[in-house]
């Protein structure tokens, strides 16, 4: 499965990639002078950096990622949300009520209660504590309706497609609004049931077949057919 425009190779943990003195990005480690892959995936060597695009693994929060989370509980002045990772997202009360505010638990519960779904941005992710998330932007906040779907976080880039092509083609042919979180959580809302089912089926298809060729054509064919 080689792509023509770059030297991508299948790698397993421990596989040697290069000895070139490149900047190390994700999923690689330097052993002496050799750059070694640490995950199952595709090695990607560019002019100034080297990384491995992983094919499996949990979501690790990265600053500025947009994620979909579910509020689990309130503690102190913060909400804690399940962001489909080994860490929980911490949403400060001050992020919602304004700086210098000390909202009570009932005030917080009124805004966002346990079980509410939010579209948030990772504001800060350091090693000392749980990642901070924020819903301060216009497009972020509570998601009121829709179907919640979880796929492997490593398949999200494939679902979005080059410049958003895959996700836009699914939205266009089903009239659905699809909110995609980098953490593998997706919310699909659609007025027609048929469109909703088709969109869900297309997402499932990408999750199962992301590593195979001709996925765009297969998804297109499925969307154009009448049944699901």
């Amino acid at each position: 499965m080689k792509k023509f425009e770059s030297k991508k190779r299948h790698v397993l943990p421990g596989d040697f990639i290069t000895t070139a003195p490149l900047r190390l990005q994700g999923n690689v480690v330097l052993e002496g002078k050799r750059v070694i892959a640490t995950s199952i995936g595709l090695s990607d060597v560019s002019a100034d950096s080297v990384r491995v695009i992983p094919l499996t693994g949990v979501y690790l929060p990265k600053i500025d990622d947009l994620v979909i989370g579910t509020i689990q509980y309130i503690f102190g002045n913060s909400w804690f949300a399940d962001i489909n990772s080994c860490y929980q997202g911490m949403l400060l009360g001050q992020d919602v009520f304004g700086r210098g505010s000390y909202p009570t638990t009932s005030e917080m519960k009124e805004r966002l209660d346990n079980g509410d779904i939010i579209y948030a941005k990772i504001a800060n992710s350091d090693r000392q504590r749980e990642p901070l998330i924020s819903i301060a932007d216009q497009s972020l906040g509570k998601i009121d309706s829709g179907e919640l779907v979880k796929i492997s976080p490593t398949k999200i880039p494939r679902l979005i497609g080059k410049h958003g092509s895959m996700i836009q083609s699914i939205e266009a042919s089903t009239n659905a609004t699809i909110t995609v979180g980098q953490n593998g959580v997706i919310v699909v809302s659609c007025d027609e049931t048929n469109g909703l089912l088709k969109a869900l089926a297309a997402i499932r298809m990408v999750d199962e077949q992301a590593h195979l060729v001709n996925l765009t054509d297969k998804v297109k064919k499925m969307l154009e057919s009448d049944g699901v």
Binding site: L12, P13, G14, N27, V29, E31, I36, T38, S39, I40, P54, L55, T56, G57, V58, T154
Partner: peptide
């Protein structure tokens, strides 16, 4: 462990 995506230096 590799199947779970845990980063490993080697198998």
């Amino acid at each position: 462990l590799a199947d779970a995506g845990i980063p490993m230096r080697d198998l």
